[in-house]
């Protein structure tokens, strides 16, 4: 199994799907000649040309709107938003148009759109360029939310997203692009709604996604030194969500920490904690603990940013509180 970086896995997924299906095309800011601000479309314009790898104006609502129109006509657009932050600019097209259209038209059409966008903070980009706002989209019906943490998941889930008949928001993470991992040689399509146990354990379940999976794995190592065997469970897709996978794990370990990089209130983490308590109240040995970002606009100063965003230490502390 070859090792590759996260962004290389994304490029492979797009290239394979574009070779396979003529109706798949990419559009976004600086994705063609420039190769993508995070190199995630590097080389694709050379192979597929400017008809299928389209550089666009800086007009995020327009980009998503054009993708909706192209999908209505039967194409499979894969628009890139340079970052998740700019999804806020395109919110009306994503939520009011892409996500609702199939339902409000009574199922008359499919909209096979995969909106790619990297989120996350940690590189001192300040308040407007550090968002982990996947929860906003999970809160809105009609859109799938896919959020891989490893190169293999990134590749397998992006291929599934592009082949999906529905609207998918595919959330990458700026700090994961250069991370490395094994990616299978053969074609793998990872199904939606299947959590992956990234580290098996018996004493405690840490539910985490995207970059927080890696923080959780570090935390699990530290906890192991304290004699606590933590399981790390990565849902991989937040919509659909593998509730059975989470409940099975937590029913076994009887303790759970939910760790996310986004803000705490009314988040996916809050929903997971609520449902675990609704479903497994009598199986739990402790309340579900939560780790999330401090609810301030992400500050620029390195020390303040580090304090605002959650990390492995925060997960360890939360775990120790409920592990006694």
């Amino acid at each position: 199994m070859p090792e590759m970086r996260y962004y290389e896995a994304l490029i492979e997924a797009m290239a394979e799907e574009m070779r396979r299906d003529e109706s798949v095309f990419l559009m976004g800011e600086d994705i063609g000649l420039f190769g993508g601000t995070f190199r995630a479309t590097e080389g694709l314009m050379a192979e597929f040309g400017s008809r299928r790898v389209r550089d666009t104006p800086i007009a995020e609502a327009g980009i998503v709107g054009l993708a909706v129109g192209a999908a209505m006509a039967g194409l499979r657009p894969v628009p890139e938003l340079m970052t998740m932050n700019f999804a806020i600019v395109a919110m009306d097209q994503i939520i009011n148009h892409a996500a609702k259209m199939r339902y409000m038209f009574g199922g008359q059409l499919n909209l096979p759109i995969t909106i790619r966008a990297p989120g996350g903070g940690g590189t001192q980009k300040g308040a407007q360029h550090s968002h982990s706002i996947e929860s906003w989209f999970v809160n809105s019906p009609g859109i799938r939310v896919v959020i891989p943490s490893t190169p293999a998941d990134a590749k397998g889930l992006l291929k599934t997203s592009i082949r999906s008949e529905d609207v998918v928001l595919f959330v990458e993470h700026e700090m994961l692009y250069s991370s490395k991992g094994q990616v299978p040689d053969e074609e793998v399509l990872i199904p939606f709604g299947r959590a992956d146990i990234k580290r098996p354990g018996t004493d405690l379940t840490i539910v985490a996604w995207s970059k927080m999976v890696h923080e959780a794995l570090h935390a699990a190592e530290a906890l192991a030194a304290e004699g606590i065997d933590a399981e790390v469970l990565d849902p991989r897709t937040l919509d659909p969500f593998d509730w059975d996978g989470v409940f099975e794990s937590v029913a076994r370990t009887r303790r759970c920490v939910v760790a996310e990089e986004g803000w705490r209130s009314v988040s996916v983490g809050a929903e997971i904690a609520a449902r675990i308590q609704e479903t497994l109240f009598h199986e739990l040995d402790a309340p579900v603990a939560r780790v999330a970002a401090v609810e301030v606009p992400t500050p620029y100063a390195r020390k303040l940013e580090q304090k605002a965003l959650p990390n492995a230490d925060d997960i360890v502390r939360a775990a120790l509180k409920i592990a006694v």
Binding site: F25, R51, A61, G62, I63, V64, G65, L66, A67, V68, G69, A70, A71, M72, A73, G74, L75, P77, D92, Q93, N96, H97
Partner: peptide, 16 residues
């Protein structure tokens, strides 16, 4: 105004 970029997207499909 929401349908305007979508109209352009339909046009993109025609050209594509």
């Amino acid at each position: 105004g929401g349908s305007i970029p979508i109209a352009a997207g339909l046009g993109l499909a025609c050209n594509y």
